[in-house]
Simulated scan of single mutants.
Amino acid sequence: MNLFRREPSRRPVEDVDLDSLLALVAESLGYSFEFAPDGSTVALGGPQPLVVQLKGLRREAGRRAREDWPMLVSEHLAHAVATAGDRLDVCELKQVRSLLRTRVEAVDEIPDLTRVVGRHLNADLVELLTVGSRPVRPEESGCWPVPTGQALDLAVANVRARERLRVEHIELSGTPVTRLTASSPSAATHLRWLSSYLAVPSDGALVVLPDPYTLLLHPVDGIGVVRAIERLRVHAARTDGLSSQVYWWHEGRLTLIRADIVTRDGQTRLVVAPPPDFARVLARLAV
């Protein structure tokens, strides 16, 4: 076994323990190892020598319980070995800055939210930070000289700069809606600039997200919005895509309008439970 090259007595015990795990996993993968004096990297020697960044791993380990460390270290080194031939090092922000994007996913579809980088749009949906087609791992973004929120803002700016959605006006059972379509799975990111695609009234718009590439919208501009909720909810349920629910986009927030399709005595109806703010809008529109 290689000897650590730093003075043990001057190092935090957490670093010593994490390096011990790294050493064990490296040897199990058939590699020798040598840590940089500052602990920022470990050089793996063997059939495919490589240098593995550790700064982000140490940050992530500091946020996790110790029982999670073996899994965290194993995944980190296994991923580094698997991608050793790639020219792109996600731990280097300069390399990936222009490739950062976002993708919206249903929270229930993500096995472990602690293994991805993102932020919630609401309780049901999360906006993930991606490089190419895959989510960024926390230990990768932890290497960057910017906080997670700023990295997500960089990705959002890239989405806006590199794509404009296609706008179509369609009908759902006689109810007019606007369909916005993207060529990448970042359609929901464009909600931030919705007014550049259609006239958005002061009360906002109804939104459904049948898939990561599509938005369907209806303005909240009259009592006809009640019928629109029904049409959008039924359509979203049929597509069985990103979300089957209807949302309210207003003042930069995406709020769930709970609408359940209930079948009783052979009859199907929609039971809507709007959030208080939206209920007040409906009451005003009904006058």
Rank of each mutant, 00 (worst) to 15 (best):
M1H: 14
N2W: 09
L3N: 12
R6V: 13
D17P: 00
D17T: 13
L21V: 07
A23F: 08
V25A: 14
E27K: 00
E27M: 13
E27P: 11
S28P: 01
S28G: 15
L29H: 15
S32G: 15
D38K: 08
G39W: 01
V42F: 05
V42L: 00
A43F: 02
L44W: 05
G46P: 04
G46L: 03
P49W: 07
V52S: 07
Q53K: 13
L54A: 07
E60Y: 10
A61Q: 08
G62A: 11
E67Q: 12
W69I: 01
P70M: 01
L72R: 06
S74H: 10
H76V: 07
H76S: 10
H79Q: 09
H79I: 04
A80K: 05
A82M: 13
T83H: 08
G85P: 00
D86Y: 02
R87G: 12
R87W: 11
C91S: 15
K94I: 08
K94V: 13
Q95E: 14
R97Y: 05
L99F: 03
L100K: 00
R103M: 14
V104Q: 02
A106H: 09
R115T: 08
V116N: 08
A123E: 14
A123C: 06
V126L: 07
V131N: 07
V136P: 01
E140M: 09
P147H: 06
L152E: 03
D153Q: 14
A155N: 04
A157G: 09
A157T: 06
N158W: 09
V159R: 02
A161C: 03
R162F: 10
R164D: 11
L165K: 06
R166A: 13
G174Y: 00
T175N: 13
T181S: 12
T181N: 10
A182L: 06
S184F: 11
S184I: 04
L191E: 12
L191C: 02
W193N: 08
L194V: 04
S195E: 15
L198N: 12
A199L: 13
P201W: 07
S202Y: 10
S202Q: 15
A205Y: 08
A205G: 01
P210W: 00
D211K: 02
H218T: 05
G222F: 09
G224T: 11
V225E: 04
R231D: 12
L232K: 10
H235W: 04
H235A: 10
A237L: 15
T239Q: 15
T239D: 03
L242C: 13
Q245R: 14
W248C: 01
E251F: 00
E251I: 02
L254G: 00
L254E: 06
T255W: 06
I261D: 00
R264I: 12
G266F: 06
Q267N: 13
Q267F: 12
Q267Y: 11
R269N: 06
L270M: 11
V281Q: 03
L282W: 02
L282S: 03
